[in-house]
Design a protein around this nucleic acid. Structure first.
Lengths: 134, 134
DNA sequence: CTAACTCCTGTAGTGGCTACAGGAGCAAGT
DNA sequence: ACTTGCTCCTGTAGCCACTACAGGAGTTAG
C-alpha cells in the first residue's frame, strides 16, 4: 500500500487533484492508516493513471466516469466507448478548425503591423465598425 | 444614449457579461439615468465591441486591457501590439499542434474498437501500463 | 529528540462568464 | 389611472477542473 505522495508519483496525478477526485466521487475513497493517512493499492493507482490518461486525451470528467463504470462491468461495451470517442474526436476537430480560422484572422490583422508606426492598423481595424469575426 | 439591452445588441456582448466587465474594471462605468439604469454612449458601445472582437480572436482579458490602455494613448504603439499578437499566435499554434497530436492518439486508440466486442481494446490499453500520452 | 518532511482538513481563488432570485423602473394599451 | 409585460437593478452562486493556501498533525532520519 502506498501513501498519497507515492500514488501521485506513480499515477502522474497531482496530490491535490487526487484528493479533489475523491471529494467529487470520481474515484473511490481509499483506506486509511492508523494515523489517518490515505493508503492506495496498486489497483487504485492504476485507476488514477487511467483517469490521467483520459484527461490527457482531453476527455471531460463526466465521460471518464462513464468509462470507469464500463470497466467495472466486465462487459466493456466497446460500442459505447467508440461512440463517446468519436464524439470527442468531432469536438477536437471542431476546435482545430476554429483555431485555424482564428490564426488566419490574426495573421491578416497583424500583417500590416510594422514596428515604429503610430496608429496601429490592427487596433484600428478592431475599433472600426464593419469588421466582424466569428 | 442607450440602455444596457441596446448596448448589448449593438456590441454583441451579453448583458450579464457587460455588467461583469464593469465590475471587473475592464470597461469604465457608464453614466446612469434618473431611475438608476446604465446609459451607454456610442463610444462606450464601440469599446464593448472592441473587447468582443478581441475575445473572439481568443485574446485573454489581461491582454485586452493592455490594448485598451494603448488605444487611450493616441500613440497606438504598434510594436507592442505586434509582439502581443505574435505571442498569442504562438499559443494558438501550440494548441493546434497539441490537438492534432491528441487526435492522432485518439484515432489510433479507437481504431481497433469494433462494435459488439466485449473487452474494449481502447479501455484496455488505457488501463494497461506502458501507454503514455503527453 | 528534533528537524524536516509528508500528510490532513477546509476554504478560497483561477478565467470568463452564466444563471438565478427577488425586486424596481418604464412604456403601451385599456 | 391602472394593469400588463418587458427590461433593468443588485447580489450571489454555479460552471470546469483544478490549484493554492493556512494551520495543524503524523512520520522518519540522523
Amino acid at each position: 500500500m502506498f501513501t498519497i505522495g507515492k500514488a501521485s508519483g506513480q499515477s502522474g496525478v497531482n496530490i491535490e487533484t487526487i484528493r479533489y477526485y475523491e471529494r467529487e466521487g470520481i474515484v473511490p475513497k481509499p483506506g486509511r492508516s492508523a494515523g489517518g493517512r490515505r493508503l492506495y493499492s496498486t489497483d487504485e493507482i492504476a485507476t488514477l493513471r487511467f483517469v490521467r490518461r483520459c484527461r490527457d486525451l482531453g476527455f471531460p470528467i463526466s465521460i471518464i466516469q462513464t468509462f470507469l463504470s464500463l470497466t467495472e462491468q466486465d462487459d466493456r461495451s466497446c460500442g459505447e466507448v467508440k461512440t463517446l470517442a468519436e464524439n470527442h474526436l468531432d469536438e477536437i476537430n471542431a476546435k482545430i478548425k476554429t483555431l485555424t480560422r482564428l490564426r488566419e484572422a490574426l495573421l491578416s490583422l497583424s500583417a500590416n503591423c510594422d514596428d515604429g508606426t503610430a496608429a496601429c492598423p490592427m487596433l484600428n481595424s478592431l475599433m472600426r465598425d464593419g469588421f466582424s469575426e466569428k
